[in-house]
Amino acid sequence: MSDNPYQDDRGNKDRSITNPHGQGTLTATGTQDHPMPGHDGPFLIGENMTGGYGKSGPDILHDCTIAVERGEIAVIVGPNGAGKSTAMKAVFGMLDLREGRVMLDGQDITQLTPQARVRHGMGFVPQTSNIFTSMTVEENLEMGAFIREDDFRTTMEQVYELFPILREKRHQAAGELSGGQRQQVAVGRALMTQPKVLMLDEPTAGVSPIVMDELFDRIIEVARTGISILMVEQNARQALEIADKGYVLVQGANGYSGTGKDLLADPDVRRSFLGG
């Protein structure tokens, strides 16, 4: 039972009066709409982040630092429960940070709401429920561009060029597509805002190895256009192969970090996380 009496539904599951479908679960912690001046450093960095869910929740991250440079791919890997997704959510402002800060392009965005971060150039693709299932592919992309006042047709064209299958299926409901195609829609939707940074939470979860390789290829293509990529991955080996920078998280703290190649070559990392 929740402490908030308004959130106590007494286990009621009466669908003739309540509709849980698509209900919001997002917990935003920031309150501000405008960033504060920061200092020089990497393009995007979550610096010395310590925090957990809720004001009184236990700390999940401990002095954790994640950074990515312009046009590079950074990958967060680690065992289950290491706080990989949590670290990414912290960068996106969905975690109560007790210490540390988040900087984007030299501006301090620690206090920004997730929506404000989107406006300032961050694109986020959640792990699940990352598309509008009842809407067509094209409508999904349009909704991605919701905040844009200018003509977004060129961007949509670029997305279709990146993911040709989406052009084919653009009038089909996104919920009817296969797992890999859904992920393409999800990434495409996030790209529609023309973000400077694209954050992907396990984009290859539940897709076949072939589709996974294909998705990684596309992600590299996106990075080549100058967009930084920050990605959480279960498939550590493949992910580190395409990564410019890798972070191995252990119990919410930085375990190892370095270039993807270094980490793949590091015997400790190999033994502990890559299965030898």
Binding site: N12, K13, D14, R15, S16, I17
Partner: peptide
């Protein structure tokens, strides 16, 4: 499959 007690 799910409750419809209210309307019932």
């Amino acid at each position: 499959r799910s409750d419809y007690l209210a309307i019932a």
